[in-house]
Simulated assay, not measured.
Amino acid sequence: MAIRRKIFASLAALLGFILAGVVQASADYNMRPGVTETSLEAYDLHMLVIWIMTGIAVVVFGLMFYSIIFHRKSKNPNPATWSHSSVVELIWTTIPLVILAFLTVPSIQLLLKMEDTSDPDLSIQVTGSQWKWHYKYLDKDIEFYSTLSTPREQFENFSGDAATKGENYLLEVDNELVIPANKKVRFLVTAEDVIHAWWVPDLAVKKDAIPGFINETWTRVPQTGVYRGQCAELCGKDHGFMPIVVRVVSEQDFEAWVEKKDAERIAAEKAAAEAAAKSWDMDKLMALGEQVYNGKGTCAACHKPDGSGMPPGFPALKGSAIATGPVKDHIDIVVNGSTGGMQAFGKQLTDAELAAVITYERNAWGNNTGDKVQPADIQAFKAGNQ
């Protein structure tokens, strides 16, 4: 009896160790609960499965250790003559079926709920591209690109003395996606080049962005705050630099934000028209072009700041046939992109920015073609290709 008490004490200690590990994992390494109703339901279902698995592990390992100790050869030198038990086989077949049936009902209910995008209060088209997100509010006259705002010198640490990393290193953007709290927001997710995935863990939203297809998902966030996510599909060189930032605000603040974006759009359109109407000198074109090349245009991400590129995937612009060849061909590939992976910048940049960055590429790094591309040239090219 003393041995049995020791065995059961050991099993109790094992159970305590397992339970302690589950609690610790829940606190430090577990799936995050999130903030939406669906994310909390997914977390509760996840924890239910974890506890069922823990119970199964305790029973199975308990029986295994019991059999090892009390049915060992030294204690029972004569083996049993029976080969199986139909009752035991029925039990260990029935119990898993009951558990699976028990888990099927809440799982299906939750999946159906997560797929129900009907009757949204707001619809937003999310388009992934290499390597940024484009947001278009289908109920508003608002659309913009959202790109990583972490300075490149913080993560391109080739010299080993990079700048100090910020609080939201690699999870900060220049334009946040803003949505109202307590409203059902539908996302129509697609891509324009390769497969991406739009993932915000706290909102229980993760959807593949596939070129030529539109996937739907939704969320309703009950509380204001900032929620961060990332592209969750390996999509190329800068896959790790496609963060997502969703700012949830009150309904009143959202309406104020919409009015502000409308005013910014009108001002930007006016400024772009004024910039496109004038003739730019070489110095101004080169200054703006360098700024666009290394910043907003993200050209340096593929072609490098010195124009040397990363062949064969990302060709050099320094001395290239595009940058030193016919101007029209250069405008065409920047505005419309190419099938080789070059994305189209015709809608991402203003006519003045397009003219400036093309001028910069044709005269930087020793190219020195002397060509000055004006915004009027971009407008004429677009008009001829409509």
Score class of each variant (00 low, 15 high):
Ile56Gly: 08
Ile358Cys: 01
Met1Phe: 09
Ser83Ile: 11
Thr339Met: 14
Ala277Val: 06
Phe144Ala: 07
Val173Cys: 03
Ala25Met: 10
Ile108Met: 11
Leu148His: 00
Lys284Leu: 01
Phe70Cys: 13
Ala57Met: 11
Pro33Glu: 07
Pro79Asn: 13
Trp280Pro: 08
Glu156Gln: 10
Tyr43Pro: 00
His134Val: 11
Met64Ala: 12
Leu288Gly: 00
Gln386Asn: 14
Lys136Ile: 02
Ala57Tyr: 11
Ala272Gly: 11
Asn367Phe: 08
Tyr29Ala: 15
Tyr293Asn: 03
Phe61His: 11
Leu177Arg: 13
Gly313Phe: 10
Lys261Asn: 13
Val194Trp: 07
Val189Ser: 08
Lys206Glu: 13
Lys206Cys: 11
Ala20Cys: 09
Val98Pro: 00
Ala209Val: 09
Phe213Asp: 13
Lys184Val: 09
Met114Tyr: 01
Gly295Asn: 12
Gln374Leu: 11
Leu288Pro: 01
Ser107Cys: 08
Val173Ile: 05
Ser320Leu: 08
Pro312Lys: 04
Ala272Thr: 07
Val98Arg: 00
Asp329Ser: 10
Asp116Lys: 05
Gln343Trp: 07
Ile108Trp: 10
Asp253Trp: 04
Gln386Val: 12
Leu63Ala: 13
Asn385Asp: 05
Asn367Ile: 07
Lys382Tyr: 06
Glu167Cys: 06
Val194Glu: 05
Asp121Tyr: 05
Ala25Asn: 12
Val178Pro: 10
Ala263Val: 10
Lys347Glu: 15
Gly128Ser: 11
Glu251Val: 03
Phe155Ala: 02
Pro375Leu: 09
Gly289Met: 02
Gly212Trp: 15
Asp253Pro: 09
Ala42Gln: 06
Thr81Ser: 12
Leu288Cys: 07
Ser159Cys: 04
Tyr145Trp: 15
Pro79Trp: 12
Tyr135Pro: 02
Leu97Ala: 13
Lys6Asn: 05
Tyr135Thr: 04
Lys260Met: 15
Ala267Thr: 14
Thr150Gly: 01
Thr324Glu: 11
Ala20Asn: 04
Leu112Glu: 14
